[in-house]
Protein backbone atom coordinates (compact mmCIF):
# COMPACT_ATOMS: atom_id res chain seq x y z
CA UNK A 1 0.00 0.00 0.00
CA UNK A 2 2.41 2.65 1.22
CA UNK A 3 6.12 2.16 0.74
CA UNK A 4 8.75 4.59 1.89
CA UNK A 5 12.21 3.65 0.70
CA UNK A 6 15.36 5.31 2.03
CA UNK A 7 13.81 8.73 2.49
CA UNK A 8 16.20 11.54 3.37
CA UNK A 9 15.49 15.17 4.01
CA UNK A 10 17.94 17.76 5.23
CA UNK A 11 16.72 21.23 6.14
CA UNK A 12 18.96 24.26 5.62
CA UNK A 13 21.74 22.18 4.10
CA UNK A 14 25.15 23.78 4.31
CA UNK A 15 24.24 26.31 6.98
CA UNK A 16 24.78 26.32 10.72
CA UNK A 17 21.11 25.39 11.04
CA UNK A 18 21.54 22.22 9.00
CA UNK A 19 19.16 19.61 10.30
CA UNK A 20 18.80 16.02 9.17
CA UNK A 21 15.06 15.58 9.64
CA UNK A 22 14.64 12.29 7.79
CA UNK A 23 17.59 9.93 7.81
CA UNK A 24 17.33 7.04 5.37
CA UNK A 25 13.83 6.25 6.58
CA UNK A 26 12.10 3.13 5.27
CA UNK A 27 8.62 1.93 6.10
CA UNK A 28 6.02 -0.31 4.55
CA UNK A 29 2.31 -0.39 5.31
CA UNK A 30 -0.11 -3.01 4.10
CA UNK A 31 -3.58 -2.27 2.84
CA UNK A 32 -5.86 -1.49 5.78
CA UNK A 33 -3.01 -1.12 8.26
CA UNK A 34 -3.59 1.32 11.11
CA UNK A 35 -0.23 2.25 12.58
CA UNK A 36 0.36 4.49 15.57
CA UNK A 37 3.61 6.43 15.77
CA UNK A 38 5.40 7.58 18.89
CA UNK A 39 8.62 9.50 19.20
CA UNK A 40 10.09 12.41 21.11
CA UNK A 41 9.76 16.01 19.97
CA UNK A 42 11.78 16.61 16.86
CA UNK A 43 11.97 12.93 15.97
CA UNK A 44 10.70 13.74 12.49
CA UNK A 45 7.13 12.48 12.71
CA UNK A 46 5.53 15.58 11.23
CA UNK A 47 8.32 15.81 8.68
CA UNK A 48 7.59 12.27 7.53
CA UNK A 49 3.92 13.19 7.14
CA UNK A 50 4.89 16.29 5.19
CA UNK A 51 7.04 14.14 2.91
CA UNK A 52 4.20 11.67 2.33
CA UNK A 53 1.67 14.45 1.73
CA UNK A 54 4.05 16.28 -0.59
CA UNK A 55 4.54 19.53 1.32
CA UNK A 56 8.11 19.30 0.05
CA UNK A 57 10.03 16.90 -2.14
CA UNK A 58 12.48 14.60 -0.40
CA UNK A 59 16.22 14.83 -1.09
CA UNK A 60 16.53 11.11 -1.66
CA UNK A 61 14.35 8.06 -1.64
CA UNK A 62 11.08 6.89 -3.06
CA UNK A 63 7.47 7.16 -1.95
CA UNK A 64 5.03 4.66 -3.39
CA UNK A 65 1.31 4.64 -2.74
CA UNK A 66 -0.93 1.90 -4.04
CA UNK A 67 1.70 0.80 -6.52
CA UNK A 68 2.21 4.30 -7.91
CA UNK A 69 5.46 6.19 -7.52
CA UNK A 70 4.33 9.54 -6.09
CA UNK A 71 7.73 10.89 -5.08
CA UNK A 72 7.47 13.89 -7.38
CA UNK A 73 3.74 14.32 -7.63
CA UNK A 74 2.69 17.78 -6.38
CA UNK A 75 0.87 18.15 -3.10
CA UNK A 76 -2.53 19.17 -4.46
CA UNK A 77 -2.64 16.11 -6.69
CA UNK A 78 -1.65 13.79 -3.85
CA UNK A 79 -4.31 15.26 -1.60
CA UNK A 80 -6.88 13.68 -3.86
CA UNK A 81 -6.09 10.36 -2.21
CA UNK A 82 -4.35 11.38 1.00
CA UNK A 83 -6.46 12.84 3.80
CA UNK A 84 -4.76 14.81 6.51
CA UNK A 85 -5.46 16.21 9.98
CA UNK A 86 -3.20 18.55 11.89
CA UNK A 87 -2.67 19.02 15.59
CA UNK A 88 -4.08 22.54 15.44
CA UNK A 89 -7.86 22.31 14.98
CA UNK A 90 -7.84 25.75 13.36
CA UNK A 91 -5.66 24.61 10.49
CA UNK A 92 -7.87 22.20 8.63
CA UNK A 93 -10.82 24.48 7.93
CA UNK A 94 -11.49 27.92 6.44
CA UNK A 95 -12.93 30.07 9.27
CA UNK A 96 -14.77 32.62 7.16
CA UNK A 97 -16.53 30.07 5.01
CA UNK A 98 -19.63 28.19 6.07
CA UNK A 99 -19.68 24.54 7.09
CA UNK A 100 -21.35 23.73 3.81
CA UNK A 101 -18.77 25.63 1.77
CA UNK A 102 -15.92 23.94 3.61
CA UNK A 103 -17.37 20.54 2.87
CA UNK A 104 -17.91 21.55 -0.75
CA UNK A 105 -14.25 22.45 -1.08
CA UNK A 106 -13.27 19.12 0.46
CA UNK A 107 -15.70 17.36 -1.85
CA UNK A 108 -13.86 18.81 -4.87
CA UNK A 109 -11.70 15.71 -4.69
CA UNK A 110 -14.61 13.67 -5.92
CA UNK A 111 -14.92 15.55 -9.18
CA UNK A 112 -12.71 14.31 -11.93
CA UNK A 113 -13.98 16.34 -14.83
CA UNK A 114 -12.41 19.70 -15.52
CA UNK A 115 -15.53 21.64 -16.43
CA UNK A 116 -16.85 20.98 -12.97
CA UNK A 117 -15.03 24.08 -11.73
CA UNK A 118 -17.92 26.31 -12.76
CA UNK A 119 -20.60 24.10 -11.27
CA UNK A 120 -22.22 24.79 -7.95
CA UNK A 121 -22.91 22.56 -4.99
CA UNK A 122 -25.98 20.53 -5.85
CA UNK A 123 -29.00 19.70 -3.69
CA UNK A 124 -27.95 16.08 -3.66
CA UNK A 125 -24.51 16.95 -2.35
CA UNK A 126 -25.99 19.19 0.32
CA UNK A 127 -28.10 16.24 1.43
CA UNK A 128 -25.00 14.08 1.56
CA UNK A 129 -23.19 16.69 3.68
CA UNK A 130 -26.14 16.86 6.05
CA UNK A 131 -26.20 13.12 6.43
CA UNK A 132 -22.50 12.94 7.18
CA UNK A 133 -22.65 15.84 9.62
CA UNK A 134 -25.47 14.15 11.48
CA UNK A 135 -23.17 11.19 12.15
CA UNK A 136 -21.01 13.47 14.30
CA UNK A 137 -23.88 13.97 16.78
CA UNK A 138 -22.81 17.56 17.31
CA UNK A 139 -25.85 19.25 15.84
CA UNK A 140 -23.75 20.67 13.02
CA UNK A 141 -26.23 19.52 10.38
CA UNK A 142 -28.52 22.36 11.49
CA UNK A 143 -25.75 24.94 11.26
CA UNK A 144 -24.62 24.38 7.70
CA UNK A 145 -24.81 28.10 6.91
CA UNK A 146 -22.72 29.14 9.91
CA UNK A 147 -19.13 30.23 9.40
CA UNK A 148 -16.73 27.59 10.69
CA UNK A 149 -14.93 30.21 12.76
CA UNK A 150 -17.86 30.12 15.19
CA UNK A 151 -17.34 26.43 16.03
CA UNK A 152 -15.35 25.12 18.98
CA UNK A 153 -11.98 23.45 18.47
CA UNK A 154 -13.45 20.00 18.91
CA UNK A 155 -16.26 20.67 16.47
CA UNK A 156 -13.78 22.03 13.97
CA UNK A 157 -11.54 19.00 14.32
CA UNK A 158 -14.51 16.67 13.86
CA UNK A 159 -15.46 18.66 10.77
CA UNK A 160 -11.91 18.41 9.48
CA UNK A 161 -12.04 14.66 9.95
CA UNK A 162 -15.23 14.59 7.95
CA UNK A 163 -13.68 16.76 5.24
CA UNK A 164 -10.63 14.50 5.02
CA UNK A 165 -12.82 11.45 4.61
CA UNK A 166 -15.90 12.76 2.76
CA UNK A 167 -14.23 11.25 -0.26
CA UNK A 168 -12.62 8.07 1.06
CA UNK A 169 -8.85 8.58 0.92
CA UNK A 170 -6.39 5.78 0.28
CA UNK A 171 -4.31 6.99 3.18
CA UNK A 172 -5.18 9.04 6.24
CA UNK A 173 -2.49 10.98 8.11
CA UNK A 174 -3.37 12.02 11.65
CA UNK A 175 -0.79 14.23 13.34
CA UNK A 176 -1.75 14.32 17.03
CA UNK A 177 -5.17 15.40 15.90
CA UNK A 178 -6.69 15.15 19.38
CA UNK A 179 -3.82 16.69 21.35
CA UNK A 180 -5.33 20.18 21.53
CA UNK A 181 -8.78 19.04 22.63
CA UNK A 182 -10.18 18.51 26.11
CA UNK A 183 -10.27 14.84 27.21
CA UNK A 184 -13.97 14.31 26.56
CA UNK A 185 -13.91 15.90 23.11
CA UNK A 186 -10.66 14.15 22.30
CA UNK A 187 -12.26 10.83 23.06
CA UNK A 188 -15.25 11.66 20.91
CA UNK A 189 -13.10 12.65 17.95
CA UNK A 190 -10.98 9.56 18.48
CA UNK A 191 -14.02 7.28 18.53
CA UNK A 192 -15.18 8.87 15.36
CA UNK A 193 -11.79 8.34 13.79
CA UNK A 194 -11.80 4.67 14.76
CA UNK A 195 -15.27 4.22 13.39
CA UNK A 196 -14.61 5.87 10.03
CA UNK A 197 -11.25 4.16 9.56
CA UNK A 198 -12.75 0.78 10.37
CA UNK A 199 -15.93 1.12 8.34
CA UNK A 200 -14.15 2.14 5.17
CA UNK A 201 -10.99 0.17 5.76
CA UNK A 202 -8.72 3.21 5.34
CA UNK A 203 -4.98 2.75 5.70
CA UNK A 204 -3.99 5.11 8.46
CA UNK A 205 -0.95 6.58 10.20
CA UNK A 206 -1.46 8.31 13.52
CA UNK A 207 1.03 10.23 15.62
CA UNK A 208 0.34 10.22 19.33
CA UNK A 209 2.17 11.07 22.51
CA UNK A 210 0.00 8.76 24.51
CA UNK A 211 1.77 5.44 25.04
CA UNK A 212 -1.27 3.38 25.98
CA UNK A 213 -3.14 4.78 23.01
CA UNK A 214 -0.22 3.83 20.82
CA UNK A 215 -0.60 0.22 21.92
CA UNK A 216 -4.37 0.03 21.95
CA UNK A 217 -5.27 1.64 18.68
CA UNK A 218 -4.71 0.04 15.34
CA UNK A 219 -2.65 -3.01 14.52
CA UNK A 220 0.89 -1.64 14.50
CA UNK A 221 3.04 0.57 16.65
CA UNK A 222 6.03 2.45 15.25
CA UNK A 223 8.65 4.40 17.11
CA UNK A 224 10.64 7.18 15.50
CA UNK A 225 13.85 8.80 16.56
CA UNK A 226 16.41 10.96 14.78
CA UNK A 227 14.50 10.85 11.53
CA UNK A 228 14.12 7.08 11.24
CA UNK A 229 11.80 4.35 12.37
CA UNK A 230 13.72 2.66 15.18
CA UNK A 231 11.15 0.16 16.30
CA UNK A 232 8.07 -1.48 14.95
CA UNK A 233 5.74 -3.94 16.66
CA UNK A 234 2.76 -5.84 15.38
CA UNK A 235 0.85 -9.04 15.95
CA UNK A 236 1.72 -11.09 19.00
CA UNK A 237 4.73 -9.07 19.97
CA UNK A 238 2.55 -6.00 20.17
CA UNK A 239 -0.24 -7.71 22.02
CA UNK A 240 2.10 -8.77 24.80
CA UNK A 241 3.56 -5.32 25.19
CA UNK A 242 2.82 -3.05 28.10
CA UNK A 243 3.29 0.68 28.34
CA UNK A 244 6.41 0.07 30.41
CA UNK A 245 7.88 -2.15 27.71
CA UNK A 246 7.26 0.55 25.18
CA UNK A 247 8.82 3.19 27.41
CA UNK A 248 11.87 1.02 27.79
CA UNK A 249 12.15 0.60 24.04
CA UNK A 250 11.76 4.32 23.84
CA UNK A 251 14.79 4.97 26.02
CA UNK A 252 16.83 2.34 24.19
CA UNK A 253 15.77 3.36 20.75
CA UNK A 254 16.22 7.05 21.05
CA UNK A 255 19.20 6.72 23.31
CA UNK A 256 17.93 9.73 25.16
CA UNK A 257 16.54 9.98 28.63
CA UNK A 258 12.83 10.41 29.03
CA UNK A 259 12.82 14.13 29.41
CA UNK A 260 9.66 14.43 27.43
CA UNK A 261 7.08 15.36 29.98
CA UNK A 262 4.23 15.10 27.52
CA UNK A 263 4.88 11.39 27.31
CA UNK A 264 5.24 10.96 31.06
CA UNK A 265 2.07 12.87 31.61
CA UNK A 266 0.07 10.87 29.15
CA UNK A 267 1.22 7.56 30.60
CA UNK A 268 0.33 8.66 34.11
CA UNK A 269 -3.11 9.62 33.00
CA UNK A 270 -3.65 6.25 31.45
CA UNK A 271 -5.79 7.17 28.50
Amino acid sequence: MLRLLHLSKVFNRGTVNEKVALDDLSLELKDGDFATIVGSNGAGKSTMFNAIAGSFFVDRGMIELDGQDITFIPEHVRSRFIGRLFQDPLMGTAPHMTIEENLAVAYLRASTRRHDVFSRVTKKEKGLFREQLALLHMGLEDRMKNPVGLLSGGQRQALTLLMATVVTPKLLLLDEHTAALDPATAEKVLDLTKKIVKERNITCLMVTHNMSQALELGNRTLMMSGGRVVFSAEGEEREGMTVDDLLEKFTQGSGSALDNDRILLSTEQGI
Binding site: A53, P74, H76, M91, G92, V105, L108
Partner: peptide
Protein backbone atom coordinates in the same frame (compact mmCIF):
# COMPACT_ATOMS: atom_id res chain seq x y z
CA UNK B 1 -8.87 31.99 4.09
CA UNK B 2 -6.84 28.95 5.11
CA UNK B 3 -3.60 28.06 3.30
CA UNK B 4 -3.22 24.91 5.41
CA UNK B 5 -6.65 23.67 4.47
CA UNK B 6 -5.99 24.29 0.81
CA UNK B 7 -2.82 22.27 1.03
CA UNK B 8 -4.81 19.39 2.49
CA UNK B 9 -7.50 19.69 -0.19
CA UNK B 10 -7.03 18.98 -3.84
CA UNK B 11 -6.77 22.67 -4.71
CA UNK B 12 -3.73 23.97 -6.52
CA UNK B 13 -3.13 27.34 -4.83
Amino acid sequence: DSPAMVRASSINP
